[in-house]
């Protein structure tokens, strides 16, 4: 029996951004989280931040003739220079992060567990890891959302009871948005709140390493 279609990255990003509020300072990780920059509600003033020292930029620019090589976010992706944008150094950028001035960080994940721990920086088989900005972001942001595929390419669980990969940051994740649903971590349990069309809770449990608690009002994803 083939599985139902999984959510498109654009839809996953829209699930994350629908909750952003005017004035929110938001940091987007590379990879999937970056999709969020392209689906921000146009009627809201969200201040996007990136670790290299840029705050208040707009969508990623795909036409290189329109890009300014000095207006980049992490991953060397050219972004739109919005009015009010600010450049800083790396140390100032992380003072902003660590000091609690960031409302939301959206990070990718390799594993998230029911104790809110996040592992997203070291692949198996590599001699070392890439911590990047994630440890500070996960600690400093008021809210840490992990945006990731629900399983690895070869079907391994990513939402687990206990992370087996080296931790990036302990006890930091509040919400997990995947290609099959939305989960919040509450009181040491992964609570399934929303499901992708065609995915019932039992089917999602079948590809999840942690025991899911099904929210009373669990419902199909709404945007």
């Amino acid at each position: 029996m083939s599985e139902p279609e999984r959510l498109h990255p654009t839809v996953m990003a829209m699930i994350v951004t629908r909750d952003f509020r005017d004035g929110d300072v938001v940091n987007l990780g590379v990879g999937l989280p970056l999709e969020c920059a392209n689906v921000l509600p146009p009627d809201r003033e969200i201040l996007l931040h990136s670790e290299l020292g840029i705050l208040g930029f707009g969508p990623v620019i795909t036409d290189h003739t329109q890009a300014d090589p000095y207006v980049m976010m992490v991953g060397n992706l050219p972004v739109t220079a919005n009015p009010g944008m600010v450049f800083t150094s790396h140390d100032e950028s992380f003072a902003l992060i660590r000091g609690g001035h960031l409302d939301v960080t959206v990070l990718g994940g390799l594993q998230v567990d029911q104790e809110c721990n996040l592992a997203n920086t070291q692949f198996e088989g590599k001699p070392a890891g890439n911590l990047g900005g994630a440890p500070d972001l996960a600690y400093g942001a008021k809210r840490t959302i992990v945006l990731m595929h629900h399983t690895t390419n070869d079907g391994q669980f990513k939402v687990v009871e206990r992370c087996t990969l080296p931790l990036t940051a302990p006890r930091c994740v509040s919400r997990i948005v995947t290609d099959v649903g939305v989960m919040d971590i509450e009181g040491g349990a992964v609570v399934l709140k929303e499901t992708a069309p065609g995915w019932d809770p039992e089917r999602i449990q079948g590809i999840t390493g942690a025991r899911l608690v099904i929210a009373d009002d669990v419902h199909e994803v709404t945007l």
Binding site: I97, G132, P135
Partner: peptide
């Protein structure tokens, strides 16, 4: 050999 640090701690140690 390598010492891997989060970027915030790396930046602050240099600052």
């Amino acid at each position: 050999e390598v010492e891997v640090l989060g970027q915030g701690s790396l930046a602050e140690r240099i600052r």
